[in-house]
Computed example of a mutant assay.
Amino acid sequence: MVEADYEYDYKLYIQKKRLLKALSLIFIYQIIFFIIVFISLNYQLINVVYLIYFLDIDLIASISTYIIICKNIFRSKKKKVLILSSLNIYPDVQFLIDGDEYLIGKKQELVDGWIPNQRMISRLHAKIIRVDNQFFITDEESLNGTYLNGTKITKKQIKRLKIGDRIRFANVEFEVK
């Protein structure tokens, strides 16, 4: 997860550098454009002024489109993922949580993260939610409870998850990675 953050930061840095380079070229072009128009008007070369004017409008439209596309690139943030890895059941169970909501339980048809062959787990046991690239856990009114680092999560209570946290669904323990 940390390595992915560095990779994302590097890509964002490169994109910003390219955008700054494009904007500086646009600025230089505009200065040259105004110098040429000024010289053309002084020598009364009106046809050259019209030609430059229409080329400039086309270039400005292209540049505006490019800036709008770059603006969307900077707005979109890479969404983080969370991995839950089981500690005390065999075979090991791992969940890759990459959505905004992730249900965990034993009823395979109802949940995203299925914990098989565990009688203590409720059909819908808990839900993990992603908000602004942070993950939270809430208990779905399970019979045997959900615990975060040994503390029971009460009904309708939402707790933030961090790497290294231990989550226990009834008698099954997971580690957040």
Results as ranks from 00 to 15, higher is better:
113 G>P: 06
121 I>D: 04
145 G>C: 08
16 K>M: 13
45 L>I: 05
44 Q>N: 00
148 L>Y: 08
37 V>D: 05
72 N>P: 03
15 Q>V: 05
36 I>Q: 04
158 I>F: 15
5 D>H: 11
16 K>N: 10
100 D>E: 08
154 T>D: 15
89 I>Q: 03
95 F>C: 00
108 Q>Y: 02
123 R>Q: 07
27 F>L: 02
30 Q>L: 11
92 D>E: 13
23 L>S: 02
63 I>S: 11
48 V>D: 08
151 T>G: 11
85 S>P: 04
9 D>W: 12
94 Q>A: 02
93 V>I: 14
13 Y>I: 09
79 K>Q: 01
9 D>C: 06
156 K>F: 15
50 Y>M: 03
115 I>D: 01
9 D>V: 08
175 E>Q: 13
123 R>K: 10
142 S>P: 02
102 Y>T: 00
161 L>S: 04
4 A>T: 15
161 L>K: 03
1 M>S: 11
119 R>I: 08
150 G>M: 12
107 K>V: 00
90 Y>N: 05
42 N>I: 10
33 F>L: 05
39 I>W: 12
93 V>K: 11
104 I>T: 00
85 S>N: 11
170 A>V: 06
170 A>N: 03
89 I>N: 02
62 S>Y: 14
90 Y>E: 09
67 I>D: 12
67 I>V: 15
45 L>R: 04
144 N>W: 04
82 L>K: 01
157 Q>R: 14
130 R>N: 06
151 T>E: 15
85 S>A: 07
92 D>M: 07
165 D>G: 08
152 K>S: 08
56 D>H: 09
172 V>Q: 04
168 R>N: 06
76 S>M: 09
174 F>G: 07
128 I>H: 03
127 K>S: 10
147 Y>G: 06
112 D>F: 03
31 I>F: 15
156 K>S: 14
14 I>N: 02
11 K>Y: 07
76 S>N: 09
89 I>G: 03
51 L>D: 05
64 S>H: 12
17 K>N: 07
132 D>K: 01
22 A>R: 03
175 E>K: 12
122 S>H: 09
174 F>A: 10
146 T>M: 14
150 G>D: 13
94 Q>G: 03
168 R>Y: 05
50 Y>N: 05
172 V>H: 03
28 I>R: 11
2 V>F: 13
151 T>M: 15
13 Y>P: 00
73 I>H: 10
37 V>W: 04
44 Q>S: 01
9 D>K: 08
136 F>V: 02
25 L>Q: 04
10 Y>N: 07
74 F>Y: 13
84 L>T: 02
97 I>F: 09
118 Q>D: 09
7 E>W: 06
151 T>K: 15
86 S>Q: 06
31 I>G: 13
